[in-house]
Every structure is written in C-alpha cells, then in structure tokens.
Amino acid sequence: MTIRDVARRAGVSVATVSAVLNQNKYVSEQLKERVQRAVEELGYQPNRLARSLRRKKSSMVAYIVPTITNPIFSQVARGVQDVMSQASHSVILCNSDLDPKKFEDYRSILLESQIDGLILSAAHDPATGRVVEAFNSKGVPVVIVHSPRDLEDVDSILPDDHGGAVKAVEHLVALGHRRIGIVGVKNSTSSRLRVEGYKEALEKAGIPLDDRLIYLGESYADEYGYKGCQALLQVDPPPTAIFAVSDLLGIKVLSAAADMGLRVPEDISIVAFDNTFAAYSRPQLTSVSVPNYEMGQVAARLLLGRLRRSESELKRAGKAGSPSRGDRAVRKLFDEELVVRASTGPCRAS
C-alpha cells in the first residue's frame, strides 16, 4: 500500500495526498475529506521514517524528567502530551532518576534519534548546561519547565516559588501566628526562593526573623520533614505554625507533630507547597497549588512555536502573561493559588 494507491482511490494527485497528510492548510476541506476517506478505506499507514527523512523532521519531541514518580512531572508530561498529540507530534518520555550518567546518555540517544525539540526538567548540575548546549548547537530548541533556573537564553516555564511562599506565610500571619518555622532543602533553587518568600512575608508583617526557625534538610526526602519538625519544636519558644516547602515534607511534619502529642491545627498549623499529596493526608494539608498541567501545555505550545517559527503559536503560549516573543528567550512565571484545608487554624498560643 503506497501513497499512489491513496491518490488513485481519492481521485487526486500524489501531491494533494502528501499535502493532506502533512496538514497543509491550503488544501480545501472537500479534498481533505476525500483523501481522509480513502486513507481510512485502504487502511493506509504513512511510512513515518521515510517522511521524516524527506522533511528532515521526525515529528518527535522528548521530555526529560528527574523522576516520573513525582506527580509534579507526571502532570507536566500530561500537559505536554495533550498539546503535542493535537499537533501530530509524538513525545518520548525520558526518566533520568537523578542519575547524571543516565542524563548524559539521553543526550546522545536523543540527538541520534534526530528529535525536533526538547522539553527539560532537570537537576541543577553542570551536565544540564552541557545537554542544553549540545541540542542548541544542532539547532534543536529547548524549553525548561520547573528547573533549572540559572540557564540564560533558554525558554523557561516556571512556578512563582517566591510568590507562592509569600501567600502561604501571609495566610498563617492572618490567622494570628507570629512564631512560624520553615522546613526547606539545601542546594535547591526552588527551596531557596520559597525560603526568601517566607522571609519577605515575615518582614512585611513586622515579625522579626528568628534563624532558629529555619531548618534545611539535605534533600526533599520525606525523612527530612520529620527531622525538621522535631528540630523546630525544640526551639524555645517553639513555633505555632510550620511551612514545609513541599507536600512530602509537609506530610512528615504532620506525622512528627502527631508523634509528639500535638494536635493539628489546634496546637500547631501546617502549610505545604505543590498540592500533589496534600488532599490525601489526615488532616488534609493547606498547600500552595502549582498549575503543572497548564505549565506543560504552555511549554509544548512554546516549543511548537519555536519549531514552526509561528508567531501565532507564541501568542497562544503567552496568553496568560504576554511573555517576550521572537528570538529572545521566553521566561514565564505562573501564579499559584493557596488551597486552604484543615491543617491550618487560628493561633491559640498563650
């Protein structure tokens, strides 16, 4: 079965069939229907490899994630997939497991596969910059989602970590809390921005900063949420509220508070960040909700805009915030919403 058979069945030229299969917008609707009907009747499947060789386009993009088990990245991946499938692009999902060697291996594999574009969420290490440079040098556009943030001249779709943290702490302040601790993570840009937002909210409220109420764990592993809560509650006087910079840390803060005989929110209020697992804890966690699915959609549209050099695609990507366009790198911050649940309440400390 060849494209000539489809053309013969539809009563059109081979060029017309090719134009329809390649989604050429200048083909009339009547001809499109005839060709599509012939394709369905004959069960024709285009030779994707041959077509990609002719067009020098694979219609494939890749999304590299640190760990697909984290719902943040699975939500982003779903947004990317939904937009790309509508544009007849396949998405190759690559899970690096935070392994630098695996991350570097993906660079070679994907470049050999001649993907059209790359969406990347990666750890902050030297390998990330090398991978981005390798793709850019081959003319393959790259869009960053979530992280890293320290790469210049790269399109980036990012959560407003600083602003989200300000909202979380302002919520606690509005409930009357003045002794507010935070459980963060060392060597994490997202955590650093959230800690900075925490400090800004305290300053705006006229609450003196107490460095003893800042606990930074070695990673986002949930054990540091437990250890962080224990450490903060040993401070004299202890906090009446704790802000954890992720849901996983927040859930372990809940566990530690319960093990120490504290009731939530009667004795201590807890706020988390991400809103991925927050609704599954008991009590349910108040958490800053990050629009990961929408961020994935915008990243995909932005990448399509780079691929097509289409101003209309770039405008669609920038609807929510009108980012810079053209050949300049786009850097878009997404606003976040605080979802208030049962883990926060009025301060009742004497």
Rank of each mutant, 00 (worst) to 15 (best):
92 I>V: 15
141 P>V: 06
134 A>N: 09
88 S>C: 03
131 V>C: 02
146 H>V: 15
122 A>G: 11
97 D>E: 13
97 D>G: 06
111 L>A: 07
165 A>Y: 06
139 G>F: 03
145 V>K: 09
90 S>M: 08
156 S>Y: 00
92 I>S: 00
138 K>Q: 15
105 D>M: 12
112 E>W: 05
89 H>A: 01
127 A>V: 14
130 R>Y: 06
91 V>K: 04
160 D>A: 14
124 H>I: 08
113 S>C: 09
128 T>V: 06
99 D>P: 04
125 D>H: 07
144 I>M: 08
96 S>V: 05
97 D>W: 04
147 S>H: 13
107 R>I: 01
109 I>E: 05
97 D>F: 12
139 G>V: 02
99 D>Y: 06
135 F>S: 01
138 K>S: 13
107 R>M: 07
159 P>A: 14
164 G>P: 05
157 I>S: 01
98 L>I: 09
161 D>F: 06
104 E>A: 15
140 V>N: 02
135 F>D: 00
156 S>E: 07
120 L>K: 03
156 S>H: 05
116 D>T: 05
131 V>E: 00
160 D>G: 11
89 H>F: 13
94 C>N: 10
94 C>Q: 05
163 G>I: 06
165 A>M: 11
155 D>C: 11
100 P>A: 02
125 D>K: 06
157 I>T: 05
100 P>M: 00
106 Y>H: 04
117 G>F: 00
98 L>Y: 12
129 G>L: 10
148 P>Y: 05
127 A>D: 13
139 G>I: 01
130 R>P: 00
124 H>M: 06
160 D>L: 10
150 D>K: 11
101 K>W: 06
95 N>H: 11
160 D>V: 12
104 E>I: 12
131 V>M: 12
95 N>Q: 11
133 E>L: 10
99 D>M: 05
135 F>V: 06
128 T>D: 01
162 H>P: 05
133 E>Q: 14
136 N>Y: 02
116 D>S: 08
153 D>A: 15
134 A>E: 04
155 D>E: 10
121 S>R: 02
157 I>Y: 00
140 V>L: 10
144 I>G: 01
164 G>M: 03
112 E>D: 14
98 L>V: 09
147 S>R: 15
128 T>G: 04
141 P>C: 10
